[in-house]
Structures are given as C-alpha cells and as structure tokens.
Design a protein around this nucleic acid. Structure first.
Lengths: 206, 206
DNA sequence: GTTAGCATGTAAGGAGTTACATGATTTT
DNA sequence: AAAATCATGTAACTCCTTACATGCTAAC
C-alpha cells in the first residue's frame, strides 16, 4: 500500500510527458520550472527514476542524439563499457498513471507543494480538471483561514506582539492566495481564449 | 558533527523557555503558536524530548500540580508503576544553547521554517539580535528574488502561460515578504515603544 | 593541460510521519 | 459505563539530503 505522496515522482512524470529526457537535464528543468520553491538533488532523482522504471511507468532508452554527430557517438558508444546518456520516456502506463495523479481528489492533493506541481502542469490538463484543482485548493485554503481566524480570536490576549504579527502576516498571505485563485478561476470560467480544452489531441493512453 | 537543523528541537527549547511543560501540552502550543504553518506529531515530539534530555538541555520533573489536589496525586503517584505526567524544564545549558541558536548566522538560518521559529520567539531576544535576523532574512530573500528574476528573464519564451503565472505569483509573494520585513525593520529601528531590549532582566544562564 | 560543466550513480543518515499500543481521567 | 480527551510512548517507514565516487567532454 503506502501513501506515496512523492512530489518528485509526480514532477518527473509531468516533465517527461512533455518530452523524453535524461536525468541531468531533468534535474535542471525540475529546478527552474518548480525550483523557485524547491530544489532536488541527484541523490533523490536517480533512485526515483529507477523505481519508476521498475513500475513500468518509464523506459530507459540509449541516448539517440538528434543528428549530425553520429560518427562521434558511434565511435564511443561502440565500446561496451561506455557510460552513455540514459534517456527516459513515459510509457502508456506511465501516462495513464500521471493522468490519475492530475485528477486526484485526495486530502493531500491540495497541500502547498502538491498543488504547485499540479499547477505547473496545467498546460497538459483539461479545463474541467484545472477548475477542480483550483477550486479544491481554494476550499482547502478557506478551511485553513477559518482555523487561523478561530485560533487568533481564541489566543489574541495570551500571545505576545511578535507571535501575533507572525500570525497576522500568515493570515494575509493565505487571503492573498485566495484572491489569486479567484482571479484564476474567473479567468478559466470566462474562457480567456488561449485555454486548451484537451492537452493533446492525439492522446488515448493505449 | 551532523548539521542538526531541527526545527522541532528549536521550537521545543523556545517554548520551554517561557515555562516548563509536559509533552502533550507542548504539542498543543507548538501547533497553535507555529502550527498555522506546520503541525508536529507525538511520534516526533517524544523522541525529540528524550534526546534533548540526554544532551542535558532539559530535565524531566515529576509533575507537581499547582495546588489543591495533592491528595489525589499522592494517592496515585505513590504507586510505583504509575504513569505520571512528565514536566520538562530548560536547564542552564539548555538556555545557553537556545541563546546560540537564536543568534546563529549560518546559511540555513534564514530559510522559511527556521526564520518563522526565530521570529515566533522574538519576544525573548534582544533588539540587535532581532535586527540581525530580520536583515539576514531580507538579504536571503533578495538573493532569491535575483535568481527568480534572472530565471524568468532567461526562460520567458520557453515556458507555457501557467508555469509563467506560477513563477510570477511566487515572485510577488517574495516581494511582499520583503516589504513586510522592511516595515518591521523600520519599526525596530525607530524604537516603537513596546520593544523589550532584553528578554528577561533576571537572566544569566548560571 | 587544467578547470568547469556534463553525466550517473551509491551509502549513510536526517527529520519527520503513520499506525499502533497502552493506560488514566473527565465528561456525558 | 461509554466516549472523549488527556497522556506517553515505539517501530517501521518515507522522502529526501549530503557526501562521496566515477568518468567524459568542452572551453580556456
């Protein structure tokens, strides 16, 4: 069983859906697309790739360079013991699994990190999924707001000014994110033109 | 050696500085004072308390109830195998260690969680420490801003609208926190009245 | 010809969580 | 007397990091 939250796994699958890549490149993309908030190390990435292969969600391919330097590649790749780039590609099963992850409605699905990853891959999701995710996140934040306000009201007198200021600032941050979500939801609702309804017309996972 | 970042350890020491407490209560306070952002479980708290005792930063005391129900306590505590509340109190060494933690200028010291804990215990620190922490945090965020802006400029065309929007929102959040810090720093600088210069007049860790 | 960056990995460990196990006390 | 909540703990696990180890390839 095991919960398997795994932000990293999710992010890897999402990035590989756009195009196959090898580990090193993957990590760079990971740390620019999402990396403003979180940086991953090779020590977690490579083992993660291996387990994803084991589960059949990825396949390893020998690096097939775009063109041109075929001789150089041949020269070196011919040698048996050569360390070559390993390019990872999403399998049909992997695509299916990613789709499930993107649609997921579990309790963890709206937490900060998890939400950010889903948002980062919105370009690959349909509008109704986007709407559900945005609304899910918003209601999650609203629960949080309620708790924070209650807690503030309960403890207002017992806390020192600094703790209070911290809570006040935290509250405002959450309120701000809710406003942001409201704008995004409105934006999705009114069409806003460039919204692709389906991520990929030639997509049917089998 | 070992880095020993340990938000939990830090928070426990900080809370116990205010007053001795037992585990259960500690956890509740942990999850209201700081818990808006982070919730800790008993599974991490109790082992943590044990190691802090081992290092000599805390001592366990048999629960001495405030008053009144001495008979009831006596009746039950007299029995050898009885499970009593364990109240934890900060030792002199513990106080010293906490002081060091609060003044720390290491690279991890300005990260989100770490900063929040320090801020939550500002009531126990002197103004110059507060200033250093606020300014340290600010310059940390400014580094982050620089990176984010550079990354945005570099990749603006290659990213889809959603990823871009995510980064834009992230950037704004950080800018907002910088403004908040600016206000706090200004506030500290101009005195602002209620700022205690030293946390506790009767304090000399020995 | 040496630094810098590309590329892949492993071993050990840190910091916490979940799920479980136990029992006392207070409320209903 | 049942249920809630107070109170303390442990074992196994998760997810990730640090530090190390290796070697290629481009640039200076």
């Amino acid at each position: 069983m095991s919960r398997r939250s795994g932000i990293l796994e999710f992010a890897v699958l999402g990035l590989l859906r756009e195009s196959p890549m090898h580990g090193y490149e993957l990590r760079k993309r990971l740390n620019t697309s999402l990396g403003v908030f979180r940086a991953f190390s090779y020590g977690s990435l490579y083992p993660c790739l291996k387990t994803l292969v084991q589960r059949g969600w990825l396949i390893e391919e020998p690096s097939s360079p775009p063109e041109a330097d075929l001789e150089r590649e041949a020269r070196s790749a011919a040698l048996a013991g050569r360390r070559a780039k390993i390019v990872y590609r999403l399998t049909a099963d992997g695509k299916e699994h990613l789709e499930e992850l993107l649609c997921q409605t579990g309790p963890d699905a709206w937490e900060d990190e998890h939400f950010r990853v889903r948002f980062a891959f919105f370009g690959q999701t349909s509008r109704d999924v986007r709407m559900r995710v945005l609304e899910g996140r918003r209601s999650r934040l609203e629960e949080r707001l309620a708790k924070m306000r209650a807690s503030l009201a309960r403890t207002r007198e017992r806390l020192d000014d600094y703790t209070l200021e911290l809570q006040r600032h935290g509250l405002e941050s959450v309120e701000r994110e809710v406003r942001w979500l409201n704008e995004l939801i409105e934006s999705e609702r009114t069409g806003r033109g460039r919204g692709a309804t389906s991520p990929d017309p030639s997509d049917d996972t089998a």
